[in-house]
Amino acid sequence: MDEKLFLITKEPLNIEKIVNKVVRPEAGAVTTFIGTVREFTKGKRTLHLEYDAYIPMAEKQLSRIGKEISEKWPDAKTAISHRIGRLDISDIAVIIAVSTPHRKDAYKANEYAIERIKQIVPIWKKEHWEDGEMWIGDQLETTQYPKGHPEKEEVE
């Protein structure tokens, strides 16, 4: 199960395990992005977080991001795991690992992955503060989907 390259899981994430999914003799560089639960956002203190996902679709979307990366950077190999359920401060929510023969691509492809996750993967975060809680939507705050769907180039 957790040998999947693209995984949504309730279990704590292990960096080593995810990196090992992409390490290859022909790759000299692996970049990882590790998203952890931050305590303060714009001065407001988070007690803990809760993540929900449309699991089968989220895994499909993660794997589509992997495919997009392979199209843009043909020698890249990508693995992404996202945790759901309750997470405490400094817990790891997401790990993206990308291996490439040369390092510049590994950085670019990795950053591409996190941006795409925030656009197209059906995962939602609920913030729990001292004085309340809220499901957070549209972190990028750049798109409003006036037509009820992402633009063509975002979903194709």
Binding site: Y54, A58, V121, I123, W135, I136, G137
Partner: peptide, 20 residues
């Protein structure tokens, strides 16, 4: 909006996502 829905389809309403 224009996509067709068939019998037994599963539709999901997807609020703005906030993963990562």
């Amino acid at each position: 909006d224009e996509d067709l829905i068939k019998e037994h389809d599963t539709i999901a309403i997807i609020p703005p996502v906030s993963g990562g």
